[in-house]
Lab assay of single mutants.
Amino acid sequence: MQIFVKTLTGKTITLEVEPSDTIENVKAKIQDKEGIPPDQQRLIFAGKQLEDGRTLSDYNIQKESTLHLVLR
């Protein structure tokens, strides 16, 4: 499924993921596309910060959901 990741600069990254993918996994995909190390990434969905060990389905993230990427 496709999800979108919006950065603070207003750029939107499109990722191909599975509901069973972990947040860690998603961060690795963002690193592949954008070169941002996962340890600098914070992903936010519905106002919650997403934890590395959880999966997209844990957070009920469905196709075409938009996550927000904050760098630390």
Results as ranks from 00 to 15, higher is better:
D52N: 09
I36S: 13
T55H: 14
V5M: 03
Q2G: 13
E16D: 12
L8C: 03
T66Y: 13
E24G: 06
E64Q: 05
A28G: 07
E51G: 05
Y59F: 07
L43M: 04
P37D: 10
M1Q: 06
T55F: 06
D58P: 00
A46G: 11
L15G: 00
Q40S: 14
V5D: 00
V70P: 01
T9V: 06
Q40V: 12
L8Q: 11
S57I: 08
F4I: 09
S57C: 03
I44T: 11
L71S: 11
T7V: 06
R54C: 02
T66A: 07
T66E: 13
D58T: 05
Q2E: 13
I30V: 08
L71W: 04
H68S: 06
P19M: 11
E18C: 02
F4C: 02
T55W: 06
E34V: 13
K63H: 11
N25H: 10
T55P: 05
D52R: 05
I44L: 14
Q40P: 03
R42S: 11
K33V: 09
L56P: 01
T22A: 12
E24R: 10
H68W: 06
T22G: 04
Q2F: 14
F4L: 07
S65V: 04
K11M: 14
T12V: 12
Q62V: 07
T55M: 03
N25C: 02
G10P: 04
L15I: 12
K48H: 15
Q2V: 10
L8V: 10
L15D: 00
A28T: 12
P19S: 08
V17Y: 08
D58Q: 14
K11S: 06
E34M: 07
S20E: 09
P38Q: 10
K11N: 09
I44G: 07
E16Q: 11
K29R: 13
M1N: 04
N60Y: 11
P37I: 07
Q2A: 14
M1S: 05
Q2I: 12
R72H: 06
K63P: 15
K6F: 08
T55I: 12
E24Y: 15
N60T: 12
P38D: 11
H68T: 08
E18K: 10
K63Y: 07
E24T: 06
I3Y: 01
E34P: 02
E34C: 02
E51D: 13
G53Q: 09
K6I: 15
T9A: 07
L43S: 00
E24H: 14
P37V: 14
V17I: 05
K63F: 11
